[in-house]
C-alpha cells in the first residue's frame, strides 16, 4: 500500500502543472449549476477518501494496532534498522549522483545547441518508460555471474549484484530523470542571456555557472532532489531484482515491508510502511512549498 502511495508521488514535471485559473465567480456565465458543482466535488472527495486517505489511515492503524511500544519495538529490530540504514545510504548515493548528472545534463540541453540533442532528451526519459523490473534485470545481465562483466568482476572479487553497489546503481538508474526533467524546462525558459551578460562582463565559465546559472535554478534543483529522494527510498521493482534479499544486509525498507507482510508480521511490516508513508507526506508538503518558489524563478524577466 505504501508502494502505491510512493507511486502516487510519481514525478510531475513543473511544466505539466496546469496554470489554474481562479474559480469563476458564481454569476459568471462559465459557471456550472450549483448541483453539478456539488456533485463533482462530492465525487472527487469520495474518490480521494477511498483511494488515498483510507489506505494511509490503514497503514498507521495497522502499525499501531498492538500499541505504541510494539510499534517502536518493530522499528528498533536489528533487521529494520539495517533496512533503514541501507535505504538512507542508497538514497544519499543516488540523489548525489543524479544531482550532479542531472544538473550537467540540463545545463547542456538547455543552454547549448548541438546535434543529437533530441536523442539525448529522449534517453533521459528512458528510465521512466522502462518497467523498473526490466531496469533491474539489465543490471543482472551486465553484472551477474553469467553477465557481460560478471566473470571479470568475480575474478577481481568485486561484488556489485546482491550488494550495495548494485542497489545504488539500479536506484540511480530508475531515478535519473527527476533532477534533469525538473531543470530542463526551467532553464530553457530562462534562456542564455544572463549567462551571455556574465561572460561579456568577464566572468569565467565556472563563475558564470556558480554565480548566475545555479542561483537562478536553486529551487528547481531542490524540487528535483526532493522527488528523486522520495522515489529512491520507495523504489521496489528494480531493487528487488538486484538486491538478493539478504536479510539484515541487502534489504531496503520497501523490500522488508513485503517480506514481513508475507511472514504475517503485520505490525512490523506496517511500522516500516508508516515511515515510508510519512516520507511521502513530508515530500508532498515540501513539494507544494517549493512549487511556489519555482513559479517565482519562472517569472518573466521583463514585462
Amino acid at each position: 500500500m505504501t508502494m502505491e502511495l510512493q507511486q502516487s508521488l510519481e514525478y510531475a514535471a513543473p511544466e505539466a502543472r496546469s496554470h489554474v485559473r481562479p474559480f469563476a465567480a458564481p454569476d459568471d456565465v462559465r459557471s456550472e449549476p450549483k448541483f453539478v458543482r456539488i456533485g463533482i466535488i462530492a465525487l472527487a472527495t469520495a474518490f480521494l477518501s477511498v483511494f488515498v486517505v483510507l489506505p494511509l489511515v490503514v497503514v498507521f492503524a495497522q502499525a499501531l494496532s498492538k500499541g505504541v511500544s510494539a510499534y517502536f519495538a518493530a522499528l528498533s529490530d536489528p533487521e529494520a534498522l539495517s533496512a533503514i540504514r541501507l535505504t538512507l545510504l542508497v538514497a544519499a548515493i543516488s540523489v548525489s549522483l543524479n544531482l550532479v548528472f542531472g544538473v550537467i545534463a540540463a545545463w547542456a540541453i538547455a543552454k547549448f545547441e548541438f546535434s543529437g540533442k533530441t536523442a539525448l532528451v529522449t534517453l533521459i526519459d528512458l528510465p521512466f518508460s522502462v518497467s523498473p523490473v526490466i531496469s533491474g534485470l539489465v543490471f543482472v545481465l551486465l553484472f551477474g555471474a553469467q553477465g557481460y562483466w560478471g566473470p571479470w568482476l568475480q575474478s577481481h572479487n568485486i561484488h556489485v549484484l546482491f550488494a550495495l553497489p548494485g542497489i545504488a546503481l539500479a536506484t540511480s538508474f530508475v531515478t535519473f530523470p527527476f533532477v534533469a526533467r525538473a531543470l530542463i524546462p526551467l532553464m530553457q525558459e530562462q534562456g542564455t542571456q544572463e549567462e551571455e551578460a556574465a561572460i561579456s562582463l568577464g566572468a569565467s565559465g565556472l563563475q558564470t555557472f556558480f554565480r548566475v546559472t545555479l542561483p537562478n535554478i536553486k529551487w528547481g534543483v531542490l524540487y528535483g532532489v526532493l522527488l528523486c529522494n522520495a522515489r529512491a527510498m520507495g523504489e521496489f521493482g528494480a531493487v528487488s531484482v538486484v538486491s538478493g534479499h539478504v536479510r539484515g544486509e541487502t534489504n531496503t525498507m520497501p523490500l522488508l515491508v513485503e517480506i514481513l507482510y508475507n511472514e504475517y508480521q503485520f505490525v512490523s511490516s506496517f511500522a516500516i510502511a508508516s515511515l515510508l508513508a510519512m516520507l511521502a507526506l513530508i515530500t508532498l508538503i515540501a513539494k507544494t512549498m517549493l512549487e511556489r518558489h519555482i513559479d517565482e524563478e519562472e517569472l518573466p524577466h521583463d514585462d
Partner: peptide, 17 residues
C-alpha cells in the same frame, strides 16, 4: 567575449534576477 572589454546591453537587459 570576456577579454574584449566590451560593454553589452541586451535587448531584454538580462539583469541577474
Amino acid at each position: 567575449a570576456g577579454e574584449r572589454q566590451v560593454g553589452f546591453v541586451f535587448q531584454h537587459y538580462a539583469l541577474f534576477r
